[in-house]
C-alpha cells in the first residue's frame, strides 16, 4: 500500500514540506518562544530581559492566582459534567429517532451561529434589565431583579450552552453506530433496561464519550470570552489572567508561564484519555 516505504523520496518532501514549514513557523516557533520567555525576566515596558529566572513560575504560586486556577478547574469540571449528562440522553434520543437529519440540523444551527451573538443573547436574557427579570417582576413573582449575571452561575450556564453541541455531536455519532440489537439480546437474557444500557452500550460507545469529554473539557478549561463577557470579579478564569498579563500588566514571562501550564494540563488530559486502552493505537493509526 505505502509507496516507496523505506526510501527517502523527493516527492514526499515536495508534498509535506510546505505545511511542515508553515506549522513550524507559525505554531512550533511561537510555542517555543513562550516556553523560553516563561523562564526569563520581565522587561520594563513589556517584552523580556534575557536573564534566566524562575520568577514567573514563583509568581503563579501567589494565592490570588492559585484561587483562579482552582476556580478554573472547578468551573470546567462542573460545566463539562452538565454537558455530558444532558447530551447523553439527548444524543440517544436523536440516534433512535427517525428524524435524525432534522435534529442534527437543529443542533448545528446554534453551533454555527457566531459565538459572540450567542453570548450576547444570554446577556439579553440574564441581565438586571434583561428579559427574565422583566417578566418575573411583571408577573409579581419578584420585586427586585435577581442578580443572574456576572457571577459563577452565569459563567457555568453560558459555558454549558456554548459547548453542549461539542458533546452531543460525537456522542450522537457513537450511539448511531451502535448495534441496538445487542440491547435486545441483553434483555432477552434477562437484563433490565437501564442495566443493558450501562453494561452493553456504555463500553461500546467509549471512544465517542472520550471525544465528547476532550472537546468540551479542554475548550472550557481555556475559556476566555465567556468569563470576560458574562463573568464578574469572582468568576475570572485562567484564560482571562493570561490575557490581562499581556495586555494590562505587560508581563510576558508570567503570561507565558501560565500558557505553558495550561498547555501541559491540556496535553496531559488528552494523553490520559487517549492512553486508556487500545484507543491509543486507534488514534495513532488515524493520525499517521
Amino acid at each position: 500500500m505505502k509507496r516507496d516505504k523505506k526510501r527517502i523520496n523527493v516527492r514526499a518532501y515536495l508534498y509535506s514540506l510546505p505545511m511542515g514549514i508553515w506549522v513550524t513557523l507559525f505554531f512550533a516557533i511561537p510555542i517555543a518562544i513562550i516556553l523560553i520567555y516563561s523562564f526569563l525576566e520581565k522587561g520594563l515596558y513589556g517584552g523580556v530581559e534575557w536573564r534566566a529566572s524562575l520568577a514567573a513560575y514563583k509568581a503563579i504560586l501567589n494565592p490570588n492566582f492559585l484561587i483562579v486556577i482552582w476556580r478554573t478547574v472547578y468551573i470546567s469540571v462542573i460545566a463539562t459534567a452538565i454537558c455530558l449528562l444532558l447530551s447523553f440522553p439527548a444524543s440517544y434520543a436523536m440516534a433512535r429517532s427517525r428524524h435524525q437529519t432534522l435534529f442534527l440540523f437543529l443542533i448545528i444551527i446554534p453551533f454555527w451561529t457566531n459565538s459572540l451573538i450567542r453570548v450576547y443573547a444570554w446577556i439579553n436574557l440574564l441581565s438586571t434589565e434583561g428579559l427574565i427579570n422583566n417578566v418575573l417582576i411583571k408577573l409579581g413573582i419578584i420585586s427586585e431583579p435577581i442578580p443572574m449575571i456576572y457571577n459563577l452561575f452565569s459563567v457555568i450556564l453560558v459555558l454549558v450552552y456554548m459547548y453542549l453541541p461539542f458533546a452531543i455531536l460525537p456522542l450522537f455519532t457513537a450511539i448511531d453506530r451502535f448495534d441496538f440489537s445487542l440491547l435486545d439480546a441483553a434483555r432477552d437474557l434477562g437484563c433490565g433496561r437501564l442495566r443493558a444500557i450501562i453494561l452493553v452500550m456504555f463500553p461500546a460507545i467509549r471512544s465517542g464519550f472520550f471525544n465528547a469529554l476532550i472537546f468540551t473539557l479542554i475548550p472550557i478549561f481555556g475559556a476566555y470570552t465567556v468569563p470576560l463577557l458574562v463573568g464578574g470579579m469572582g468568576s475570572t478564569m485562567v484564560g482571562n489572567i493570561i490575557v490581562d498579563q499581556v495586555q494590562k500588566t505587560r508581563n510576558w514571562p508570567l503570561a507565558s508561564a501560565f500558557s505553558v501550564i495550561l498547555t501541559l494540563i491540556s496535553m496531559i488530559g488528552v494523553m490520559a484519555m487517549l492512553g486508556s486502552g487500545k484507543k491509543k493505537e486507534e488514534m495513532n493509526e488515524k493520525l499517521l
Partner: peptide, 13 residues
C-alpha cells in the same frame, strides 16, 4: 487540542 487563548497569545508574542 490547545486552548485558543494559548494559540492567540503565542502568535501575538
Amino acid at each position: 487540542i490547545l486552548p485558543d487563548v494559548i494559540i492567540g497569545i503565542s502568535m501575538l508574542i
